[in-house]
């Protein structure tokens, strides 16, 4: 799984810390999400998509 969190975070000029505060998780969780090492819950994915102004399926890319 790849994510576009880093790319969109840069677009909206947000730090990992700021994004973590906005979605209510630890900064470490954002780090693991950006590396594609953590599968978030549907709620967290929804919150991230909302903060980054995108859709869930555009934020998380699954390689077949």
């Amino acid at each position: 799984m790849r994510t576009r969190i880093k790319e969109l975070r840069a677009k909206y000029d947000l730090t990992q810390e700021e994004l973590a505060v906005k979605v209510g998780v630890r900064r470490e969780t954002i780090v693991f999400l950006e590396k594609g090492k953590y599968n978030p819950s549907l709620k967290l994915a929804h919150d991230l998509a909302k903060v980054l102004n995108t859709k869930i399926d555009e934020l998380f890319v699954f390689d077949d």
Binding site: E17, V21, G24, V25, R26, R27, E28, T29, F32, K43
Partner: peptide, 12 residues
């Protein structure tokens, strides 16, 4: 530690 490092989020 910053307050955000102590949150009990879904990963924890």
């Amino acid at each position: 530690k910053p307050k955000t490092e102590l949150i009990r989020d879904e990963r924890i």
